[in-house]
Nucleic acid binder design. Structure first.
Length: 823
RNA sequence: GCGAAAGUGGUGAAAUGGCAGACACGCUGGAUUUAGGAUCCAGUGGGAGUAAUCCCGUGGGGGUUCAAGUCCCCCCUUUCGCACCA
């Protein structure tokens, strides 16, 4: 007989709703705990990955609920974006309709799993009451100088027909559709995330973020400290600025290396007398696939530009080369080449027979150009460096920097790889950028009272590949807010990462019509205490959100420095060795499983299969194991309801010694489960210890023949099970709690306290090792002295055999554990 | 190439430097049952032995230690991130 999970789950889901258990109520008297899972894209279906993610979050939520915290776990939908638009195009519908339909379906699915979610604060990013505040924030950013417009070459996905941020290009392809990304010149709106680069490198205000994510973000920002140095061109007033982290080697610079994309090179190519070799090299390099530059067999090539410049520190005339190994997008896009002390420059110089000049000598001072097989990268003493000769190279950097600054030929500088965040997307299904273009006034912000700029809905999506907003005449043509003349709306929409960069803050006050959220609420609920989601967002979403949060703080909308205090990156759900996906045909539908075994079983299986940060291997037999476990719990309690009820108030006394082992098991399990949840968030071992305890309880037979005292121990052992199980299998826990005569909801009983005195043992079993191998065991009273332990250990049967005819050199006693004898 | 994490039974996995394999799946045998994807009992790393017990065993090799899956060094494999960052 299976336990009636379906009926039980409906019942308690309804009950939790009725008492508004999950609705956020701000209460400064009470400590809050804000648990957030990355909200789903409104695809119309929850998949196993979601269920896994939300089961982890719900376990944490319910644990803190039991602890008496004011918990908050909201949910909503990331509902703007290309997939909805593409779906609408294919199915000849409107993204809005499709999205709202999907949301309805998903909500039903959510309800089936029984997560403790506050739906009164549901948000959906594609609704005007949400994206209005995207626009409002855009304006505040604009007023703060954090929005700029740039015309440049951008990553353009030919399939999605839109621009992509640097982060969204993976190995030269689009992160969504995998189509090739090309460069296209256009005008784009940017958020100046680089203004916050330095602060984004500081992780001192987060705790428990995986080191991996921190490293990835630091890597992405890539800060370098060094100098900018200006090289004047010969026969021209123009200067080329280079960035270097090694100003100590400036005297050894023997050529300049530029990429063909460098603005000055582009200008040269426009000159009438361009060398054909230079021209063809530039064209070839620019057109070559940029992802080829990262392959192993990539060779450094270049061509002499025919131009020279002056090394500002010593007046040397040095040639300028155009090369394929310098990145235009990093630093100043120009490199001072020091072949003696940079491996890349060394190789290039050798190949093209360029001058190599040693300016850092090693300790032995025996470096010579002839003997050099590779560049000398270490520190040392300066040489051929005029006034700086014999200075050690490390301290010379500071001296050279300040000297260059005095001379006006260079200065100390810091650069980041991180680029400003291009947020313009040439698509329909996103937040309209609240800008009006006027021929007279330029780009004008839409006044606050006209927000939101709503997406026109009576529009045909998908007639052409281009942005449908371009043909929405009625929407497009407006009056300029400044001069009242004819003007046009901006047709670009925002990157959907803008939506998800502050949604956690809107959740706390989602109905606010005056502001994105109230500061009072923000200061109570934020930061999010525990954020849970996939590792794939390490460099995009998680960095954008940190950036936006810091700006919100500087706009005085909230006070905290970071959006997410603790972060858990959960693993993927795997089946047959691969991530579940339709194309692989290995998808398991959560709803089907919930139908068959119940939500509690599916959750327990997910959490039991592995620690949350590791991948979960889906296994049909494993699910049945979880189901059997809950059935065993169900039977145990049901079969013994009377005894449990009768003994509910019959407290277990300290001084009696029947069923000692069971009492021990009860209290050890309480200790273990809470430690596993709180200290490590290892739900798999927490559930394992509940299973172990269940095995201990069910080993007791003939319960009716037990004495009154023994029955009290037994009843206690049974009653802790639902309470320990509540974070993982809340429905069955509530039902069993009620069944055993309790009127309140189970969390109201609070967390269990284990009794340390019940975990003390009178006797301890010592393991006896000889030369590191276990040779025997002995059980002796706890208070035996060390000398006595030694004496007795030597007398154990099997042990004696091993120490005969040998001298005992040393006996190590580890209290309460083992004795190690060295012979 | 650089960096990080990981490598343990047939499987998912456990093990503050202290009895390797908890817990679960699967499998084997048994009980009960008209039947079982039900329940209960026993067994389950490999090898030797009737048994007590012994030998081997956490990717490979060395080392530290009374004691190493765990700490240190070298190597191999896998996964992830970065990849001409001047």
């Amino acid at each position: 007989m299976e336990y009636p999970f379906e009926q039980i789950e409906r019942k308690w889901q309804k009950k939790w709703q009725e008492v508004n258990l999950w609705q956020a109520k701000m209460n400064p008297e009470k400590k809050k705990y804000y648990v957030l899972s990355m909200f789903p894209y409104s695809s119309g279906a929850l998949h196993m990955g979601h269920v896994s993610n939300y089961s982890i979050a719900d376990a944490i939520t319910r644990y803190f609920l039991m602890k008496g915290y004011n918990v908050f776990q909201p949910m909503g939908y990331d509902s703007f974006g290309l997939p909805a638009e593409n779906f609408a195009i294919q199915n000849n519908t409107h993204p809005q309709l499709a999205t709202e339909d999907n949301i309805k379906t998903m909500r039903k699915q959510f309800d089936n799993v029984g997560f403790g979610l506050d739906w009164s604060n549901e948000i959906s990013t594609s609704r005007p009451d949400y994206y209005k505040w995207n626009q409002w924030l855009f304006k505040r950013f604009y007023e703060k100088g954090l929005v700029i417009k740039k015309k440049a070459h951008f990553n353009w996905c030919t399939d999605c027909q839109t621009v992509l941020a640097n982060e969204q290009v993976l190995e030269g392809n689009c992160w969504r559709c995998d189509e090739k990304v090309v460069l296209k010149e256009m005008e784009q709106w940017f958020l100046k995330i680089t203004d916050y680069a330095e602060e984004l490198l500081d992780f001192s205000n987060v705790s428990c973020w995986p080191e991996r994510v921190i490293t990835m973000q630091k890597n992405w920002i890539w800060k370098s400290e060094g100098s900018k140095i200006y090289f004047k061109l010969i026969d021209s007033d123009k200067k080329i600025t280079v960035f270097t982290t090694r100003p100590d080697t400036i005297f050894g610079c023997t050529y300049l290396a530029l990429p063909p994309e460098h603005p000055i090179v582009i200008n040269w190519l426009k000159e009438s007398n361009v060398d054909q070799k230079v021209k063809s090299f530039c064209e070839k390099t620019i057109n070559s696939d940029s992802s080829l530059r990262t392959t192993d067999d990539f060779t450094k090539e270049g061509v002499f530009s025919g131009k020279y410049c002056i090394n500002p520190v010593n007046g040397d005339k040095i040639p300028i080369w155009i090369t394929n190994y310098v990145l235009v997008e990093y630093g100043t896009g120009a490199v001072m080449a020091v072949p003696a002390h940079d491996q890349r420059d060394f190789e290039f110089a050798k190949k093209h027979d360029l001058h190599i000049k040693i300016v850092i000598q090693n300790q032995e001072r025996d470096l010579t150009v002839d003997k050099m097989k590779e560049a000398y990268l270490e520190s040392g003493f300066l040489t051929h460096s005029d006034a700086f000769n014999d200075m050690d190279s490390i301290s010379s950097m500071k001296a050279i920097n300040s000297w260059m600054e005095e001379q006006g030929i260079g200065n100390k500088a810091v650069t980041y790889k991180l680029k400003d965040w291009g947020i313009s997307r040439q698509r329909y299904w996103g937040t309209p950028i609240p800008i009006i273009h006027c021929n007279k006034c330029g780009s004008v912000l839409v006044p606050d009272e006209d927000l939101p700029v709503e997406l026109p809905v009576d529009i045909e999506v998908g007639k052409t590949r281009q942005n449908p907003l371009l043909s929405a005449e009625e929407w497009l043509n407006v009056k300029c807010p400044k001069c009242r003349g004819n003007a046009r709306r901006e047709t670009d929409t925002m990157d959907t990462f803008v939506d998800s960069s502050w949604y956690y803050a809107r959740f706390i006050d989602s109905h606010n019509k005056q502001k994105p959220f109230s500061k009072e609420k923000a200061d109570y609920w934020l930061p999010v205490d525990q954020y849970i989601g996939g590792i794939e967002h390490a460099c995009m979403h998680l960095m954008y959100a940190r950036f936006i949060h810091k700006v919100l703080r500087d706009l005085n909308l909230l006070s905290s420095n970071e959006p997410f205090k603790r972060l858990l990156t959960q693993g993927m759900v795997i089946k047959d060795g691969a991530k579940m996906s339709k194309s692989k045909g290995n998808v398991v539908e959560p709803l089907y499983m919930i139908d068959r075994y119940g939500a509690d079983t599916v959750r327990v299986f997910m959490l039991f299969a592995s620690p949350p940060d590791k991948d979960v291997e889906w296994n049909d037999e494993g699910v049945m194991g979880a189901f059997r476990f809950l059935n065993r719990v169900w039977r145990l309690i049901n079969n013994n309801v009377d005894i449990i009820k009768k003994n509910a108030n019959n407290t277990v006394k300290e001084s009696f010694d029947v069923l000692n082992d069971l009492r021990y098991s009860t209290h050890l399990t309480i200790k273990k489960v809470y430690e596993d949840i709180e200290n490590r968030m290892h739900f798999n071992t927490a559930i394992a210890s509940i299973m172990e305890h269940l095995n201990n309880v069910t080993a007791i037979k003939n319960v009716n023949l037990l004495t009154k005292q023994e029955q009290a121990v037994f009843a206690e052992a049974c009653l802790v099970i639902p309470r320990l199980l509540y974070p993982f299998a809340p429905h069955i826990a509530e039902e069993l709690w009620q069944l055993t005569g309790h009127k309140d909801l189970i969390h109201e009983a609070g967390v269990l306290q284990y009794r340390a005195d019940f975990l003390k043992k009178d006797e301890i079993t010592y393991v006896i090792q000889i030369k590191g191998k276990v040779r025997g065991k002995m059980t002796i009273p706890v208070d035996t002295t060390e000398d006595e332990i030694r004496r007795q250990a030597l007398k154990v049967d099997n042990v004696e055999k091993y120490i005969q005819n040998k001298t005992v050199k040393k006996i190590v006693v580890v209290k309460n554990k083992l004795v190690s004898i060295v012979v």
